[in-house]
Simulated assay, not measured.
Amino acid sequence: MSDILKQIDDVLEARKSDSPDSSYVASLYDKGIEKILKKVAEESAETVMAAKDLEHSNGAKKDQEHLVYEIADLWFHTMVLLASQNLSSNDVTTELQRRFGLSGHDEKASRSE
């Protein structure tokens, strides 16, 4: 799984030097952080709606596929956000690895101290 994330990270980094006319990602970078944040918010909302649709359909295959599609969009745009801030998926997976095996309650409590 991390291979595809690394490949996406590499493409996102390369798009920083591309013309906004030649690349969707370059156009997001060119429009700035506000546009990127709006895309993340939009994709988050679409993910929530897809999850609600799936819940109401009792697990219909097409609704499962739609949820996966929307989460892929959300992950992608979140990765664009990371790249725009000179971060990568590796930064997130490292944090997830740090948390692995911790109680969620303990992890949350450690942040509020």
Rank of each mutant, 00 (worst) to 15 (best):
M1S: 09
M1T: 07
S2R: 15
S2M: 12
L5T: 00
I8R: 07
D9S: 09
D9F: 03
L12M: 03
E13G: 03
A14H: 04
A14W: 03
S19K: 14
D21I: 05
D21S: 09
S23I: 05
Y24Q: 05
V25S: 04
V25K: 04
V25W: 01
S27K: 13
L28H: 03
D30S: 12
D30Y: 00
D30K: 01
E34P: 03
I36G: 02
L37M: 11
K38S: 07
E42F: 06
E43A: 05
S44H: 10
E46H: 04
T47E: 03
T47V: 15
V48F: 00
V48D: 01
M49R: 13
A50C: 02
A50P: 06
K52T: 10
L54P: 02
H56P: 01
S57L: 01
N58R: 12
G59K: 02
K61M: 05
K61Q: 13
K61D: 14
Q64I: 13
E65I: 10
L67G: 01
L67V: 15
V68N: 02
D73M: 09
D73R: 10
H77W: 02
T78H: 04
M79Q: 14
L81F: 15
L81G: 02
L82P: 00
A83G: 01
N86V: 11
S89M: 06
S89N: 13
N90S: 13
E95M: 14
E95D: 10
S103H: 09
G104W: 13
H105A: 15
K108N: 13
R111C: 08
E113V: 13
